[in-house]
Amino acid sequence: MSTAVTRRSLREQDPPVGAPAAASSPRRRPARLLADLLLWIAAIGGVVCIVLVILAYTAGITLIMFKTGSMSPTIPAGSVAVVQRIPAAEVEVGDVVTVDREGELPVTHRVTTIVPGATDAERVITLKGDANATEDPFPYTVTSVRTVLFSVPGIATVIVAMGNPFVLGGITVAAAVLVVWAFWPRDGRRRERMPT
């Protein structure tokens, strides 16, 4: 009874006497390692994006960018904060929250006072930026706010640049080239012929 011959068993056999050794250019190995590293980085980036989308829909977690330094030094200008939407009833004095304003950009400041609103779910809150000398001019009536979980300084410019159509197009083309290059068959590979 003969044993099955597989490609793996053929590769593991010693080459015939006088046969040239399989081509293994030292230049190809670092290139292959670089391709693998870049593919892993792209895969991790993709997983992070998927996790962020899931968190945005299930837990109300999103990102906000700080253009001004009104929350310095706690959150300097150019920071990105991770925020989560919570009911206004859960807000406490001292929390840093983002309040949406109709027709204007949202404001992110620290809560200084909380007063019950017209309903059980409503609160009237007063905010003040850590770098500001006075409280915001008007209180905000809210039923929910986005509370700041944590912030990362200095990456807002990177995220804004990623939104540029030319940058997005370049990243897409580079990713496509990387995937094609990593999985393209190599001419230098030895082709084994399966026995009939």
Rank of each mutant, 00 (worst) to 15 (best):
P106F: 11
A176Q: 01
L39M: 05
V111Y: 06
P87C: 03
S151T: 07
T113I: 08
V115E: 07
G18S: 10
F150C: 13
L63S: 12
A56C: 15
D130V: 12
A89M: 02
E90S: 01
R32P: 02
I159M: 11
K67H: 08
V17N: 10
Q84S: 12
R27A: 14
P87L: 02
I155H: 05
I155C: 09
E104S: 14
L105G: 14
V158A: 09
L52S: 15
I54K: 09
A88M: 05
T147F: 07
A131K: 06
V91I: 04
A88Q: 05
P139M: 08
G170A: 01
H109D: 11
E192F: 15
R123D: 06
D95V: 07
T157G: 05
P137D: 12
P76G: 06
S2G: 01
P195W: 04
A21M: 08
D95H: 08
G129S: 08
E122W: 00
A22I: 13
G154N: 07
P185G: 09
V142Y: 07
G46P: 08
V160W: 01
G188N: 13
G45Y: 06
T172I: 00
V83S: 08
F150D: 12
E90G: 02
V152I: 15
T98G: 11
R193W: 14
T157K: 01
A21I: 10
A23G: 07
V96W: 10
I114F: 01
A21W: 07
W184K: 04
F183N: 00
A23Q: 12
P116R: 01
F66N: 08
T62D: 15
G117E: 03
L37K: 10
A118Q: 00
M194V: 08
K67A: 02
I171W: 03
A56N: 15
A174I: 00
P195E: 06
V158L: 09
T172P: 00
A174G: 02
T3E: 03
V173F: 07
I171E: 04
L178E: 04
D136G: 11
A175K: 00
W184Q: 06
V96G: 06
I44M: 13
E135N: 14
G117I: 03
L10P: 09
I75M: 07
M65E: 06
A4C: 04
E92I: 06
L55P: 15
T98P: 11
T113L: 08
E135C: 13
G78H: 00
T112C: 09
A161V: 05
V115F: 00
G18C: 11
T58Y: 12
V124H: 02
I86V: 10
V47Q: 11
I50G: 14
T3A: 03
S72L: 07
V107L: 10
T58K: 13
P26W: 11
E135W: 03
G169N: 01
V99W: 02
A56L: 15
T119R: 00
